[in-house]
Design a protein around this nucleic acid. Structure first.
Length: 399
DNA sequence: TCTGGGGTCCTAGGACCC
DNA sequence: TCTGGGGTCCTAGGACCC
């Protein structure tokens, strides 16, 4: 029997969060972005999109397109809290939920919807209740697989509900441009268009009737897309907590740099962030990568395999310095990044439970405060306060 | 005023072993 | 005494997504 998989996507999530903080923003062109030397648009309201503003666009350019737009800096802490509310709301329906990102997830609604006669109305009610209780709007895709559910939620925004079963696929998916296919981006789309595949229907046709040459040109798509299009893709949700395969940080430098002296403090900061996050996740990496972006925006990456898996800041920093000096000293770069990968889970750490991201934020603050307290106590040679959590209640407000 | 930062997955080529 | 070939691991680079 086919499963009933939902993909739920929050509409203009960051913008919506800002509107909830400040209702006067509703109906106005709003841009959520990074300020600074290399600010880009993270997301924007539909009103701003009308002026040609889009995600990824440099902020200054976006403001040129839409001078009246209201520019707001990202407030991730608040967005994370609203995101937690969203997932908590959905967990009241089912625990079969795979979180895909801060504002989207997959749910297995097979047992919930199988016996429901008016599924559309049921989901409409879910949307309205979500809106009433959290203020958030969402689009829902309903299909037998994750791929189709994801495609479905994208079809009608905002507040859409789209079913993709049987004939729906041909009717609703085939006319879409090939770039709308999840996984085909701005590099692959033009390549496919060049060989006559302009729509998803063209792709389905090419897979079914294409000759050897087409087959070769499609590569991996030939073997995977057929199943995806015809509802035979993956319908198994990953219910486990996120288990990172790599952890890294990167930053665009204040100015272009070409010497170790210029980048050393940024590098040190990045290594410290990578180390503390790896420790929080109880991960020790066996590989360390140093990535730089040159002034032509080309990325270069050097990876080394360490002698022993580590998450120690001093080792990460030493190795990162070595990688920099041996490979990039003299090259003019605008961005530098450090990533720890190939995690080895140590036996004694296997059982450790993971905190959710919101707790990490608290942990990080406490971490800094604990250090201050430690320094203070050592100055006073007599402990006054033991740890940060003693200063105030936990996140539930309990003392 | 010229383009973020966090990830995952895939591919291709080289090294190395048998 | 003229370059096989399968398997695996490592690294670099790229595509894609949010």
């Amino acid at each position: 029997m086919n499963k009933i998989i939902l993909h739920i996507d929050l509409n203009q999530f960051f913008v919506r969060c800002e509107q909830l903080k400040n209702p006067k923003l509703e109906g106005k062109p709003v841009i959520i972005g990074h300020s600074g030397r290399s600010g880009i648009v993270s997301t924007c309201s539909y009103e701003a999109r009308k002026y040609g503003v889009s995600s990824g666009m440099p902020t200054f350019k976006a403001l040129r397109c839409c001078p009246n737009a209201i520019l707001i800096d990202c407030d991730y802490e608040y967005y994370k809290r609203k995101s937690d509310e969203f997932f908590a709301f959905l967990r009241r329906y089912t625990e079969k939920i795979e979180i895909a990102s801060i504002d989207e997830c997959y749910l297995d609604f097979t047992s919930i919807l199988s016996d429901v006669s008016d599924q559309y109305n049921y989901l409409l009610n879910l949307q309205l209740t979500l809106r009433k209780q959290t203020g958030l709007n969402c689009s829902i895709g309903v299909a037998p697989t994750k791929f189709l559910a994801k495609m479905g939620s994208d079809l009608k925004k905002p507040n859409g509900i789209t079913f993709l079963f049987g004939d729906d696929i041909q009717k609703k998916l085939y006319p879409l441009p090939i770039g709308a296919f999840f996984g085909i981006g701005k590099k692959s789309a033009p390549r496919l268009e060049q060989i006559g595949i302009k729509t998803i229907g063209d792709l389905a046709n090419a897979i079914e009737h294409g000759d050897e040459n087409t087959k070769r040109q499609l590569g991996r798509l030939y073997w995977t897309a057929d199943d995806w299009i015809h509802g035979r893709g993956n319908d198994e949700l990953d219910l486990t907590d996120w288990d990172p395969k790599s952890l890294g940080h990167s930053t665009t430098l204040d100015k272009d740099c070409s010497t170790f002296e210029e980048i050393s403090s940024a590098l040190s900061e990045l290594c410290s962030m990578v180390s503390s996050r790896a420790k929080r996740y109880k991960k020790r990496g066996l590989t360390l990568s140093l990535v730089v972006k040159d002034t032509g925006f080309k990325l270069h990456n050097k990876t080394i395999t360490l002698k022993d898996p580590t998450n120690e800041e001093s080792i990460i920093y030493d190795e990162a310095c070595r990688l920099y000096k041996e490979n990039y000293e003299g090259l003019v770069i605008r961005l530098i990044g450090v990533t720890l990968g190939k995690f080895i889970v140590l036996k004694e750490e296997k059982e450790a439970t993971q905190m959710n991201l919101w707790n990490y934020e608290q942990f990080e603050k406490n971490d800094k405060t604990n250090k201050l307290i430690k320094d203070l106590n050592s100055l006073l040679s007599k402990p006054l306060i033991k740890k940060a959590s003693d200063l105030k209640g936990d996140k539930n407000g309990n003392k």
